[in-house]
Computed example of a mutant assay.
Amino acid sequence: MKKILMVLTSVSEIPGTGEKTGYNVAEAAHPWKVFKDSGHFVDFASIQGGQPPQNEVDTDDPIQVAFTQDEATRAGLYNTARVDVVDPEQYDAVYLVGGHGTMWDFPESKGLQQLVASVYNAGNVVGAVCHGPAGLVNVELANGIHLVNGRKVAAFTNDEEVAAGKDKVIPFFLADRLEEKGATHVFADVFEEKVVVDDRLVTGQNPASAAGVAKEMEKLFAEVIHQEKAVLEQEAQALRAKKDAEKAAAAAAAADTEH
């Protein structure tokens, strides 16, 4: 079982418009189901802590309905931890949920930057979808290099911002900012699914990509589990060999004594 932390925006209103926003429920619900069905534990945090704002729930989507009605999820979302007090050592992965609000509070959150960097530096998995990669643009790793530098990533595209009618209100185009930080932005057509895996970084383009991001994260978990088992088996074999050598040495010593 792996432990995944989902991080959510605390921005409830798009500045200058009065339009309500929050985390995208589909982008949380569909990965939640993937992780939950595999027996993993999902926890929640947000930039400011407390109960994060959410976009409207699509009641025609049974997965979103199940997510919002699940007792453990409701309890976890009722009072989320602030990202700057979360212990990254408690988690095997961090997943950044999208929603337009992330464009205002994810990029400049030092707590989020430190959390993501710590998880990745420890050899664990980082995932983000849609506007969630806004939380990656300023993350620096222990070697001083930006996490996205030299990596292929997916995120909400400029054309999708135009299609969503948000191109005039967002503080920057996410795809452009990622490329400014050294990433290669890989994308599909508007609102089509696109998931990109680069080492232990998994990113998705839009809500349609959310479940796919979780599934690719699961594959990385499986690889890690396989590697852990291989290491344990090597250690067990080494221990057996040591014990066998000790027994052989003791038997040889006993034989010499008898002679």
Rank of each mutant, 00 (worst) to 15 (best):
G127L: 02
P15G: 00
D256C: 07
A208C: 01
N124S: 12
D84F: 06
A245C: 04
D244H: 08
L220Y: 01
E179C: 05
L8A: 04
A75C: 00
N55C: 10
V97M: 09
L232V: 06
G132S: 04
A81M: 13
N79K: 15
E180L: 11
H226M: 13
A45G: 09
V190L: 14
V126R: 07
D92A: 12
G212F: 03
V57K: 12
F35R: 08
K110A: 13
F41H: 14
G127T: 00
A81F: 12
A134N: 11
A188R: 01
V231F: 12
R240M: 12
Q227R: 13
A253P: 06
G132P: 08
G39T: 05
A142G: 09
F173W: 08
D199M: 10
A210E: 06
V169R: 08
L115T: 04
A122D: 10
K2W: 04
H185G: 00
I225C: 06
D159K: 10
D92I: 09
V94G: 01
N124G: 07
S118G: 13
R200I: 01
L178V: 05
E218I: 09
S38Q: 15
H100G: 09
H100K: 13
I63Y: 00
M6T: 06
V116D: 02
E228C: 00
V85L: 03
V25R: 11
L77P: 05
E216V: 06
L8E: 01
M103I: 10
E233F: 10
E56D: 15
I63R: 01
P171R: 01
S10E: 08
S118Y: 01
D70H: 10
V25Q: 09
A164V: 08
L147W: 10
E71P: 02
V57A: 12
D61H: 01
V126N: 03
P133L: 11
V148K: 01
D84G: 03
D60G: 15
V202W: 00
H100I: 14
K215R: 15
E27A: 02
E223H: 07
E27V: 08
Q227K: 13
E246K: 13
